[in-house]
Amino acid sequence: MTGDRTSAGPPGGGDGPDDALLTVRAVEGDEEAFAVLVRRHAPALVRLATRLLGGRAEAEDAVQDAFLSAWRKLPEFRGDSAFGTWLYRIVTNRCLNILRARKPQDPLDAAQEPAAPAHTVAPDRIAEGRAAVGDLHRALADLSAEQRTCWILREGDGQSYAFIADTVGISQQAVRARVFRARRHLTNALGAWR
């Protein structure tokens, strides 16, 4: 189900009302139902926004704004997509706006570089991995807002080109071109290409 893109809560049956039911209630102004939806979807959306923006605090602000925007738009929500998918879109576009508004080469990106992971990578690749993460982070800052967003949705979140095209509002071909350019730039940055 599409809601799984943001690892939605119980799809039904299990514990508590499903997203569809809670959304109907929220559309009718039931803020308690909306609160459950917020709690359920916030972790995945914060993770997405953190990937897109590079920093947790800014990501949380973007997600908060997205939820408020959704609350205000809910009376028009017609239930054509799952709540999680709808919010995924809103968060992505809000982050895209923020990235566009950033000055190029925002030094924050370098400052917020996370520590390299010490697990999940095979031991013989740890050193290479650490260096690569640093390189990658610096190179990410060079990408345009669109390249970065398309690439992160594709590479980081495994979304289809069709989904990204819908979400960002450009053609699939344009998405493919941006993902390609991002990969080209990032592989170059990762070291000796040739």
Binding site: T2, A66, S69, A70, R72, K73, E76, F77, R78, G79, D80, S81, A82, T85, W86, R89, I90, N93, R94, L96, N97, R100, F163, D166, V168, G169
Partner: peptide, 10 residues
């Protein structure tokens, strides 16, 4: 997934 209002659509 295409038909809901997207307040931030760019």
């Amino acid at each position: 997934p295409d038909r809901n209002p997207d307040p931030d659509r760019n």
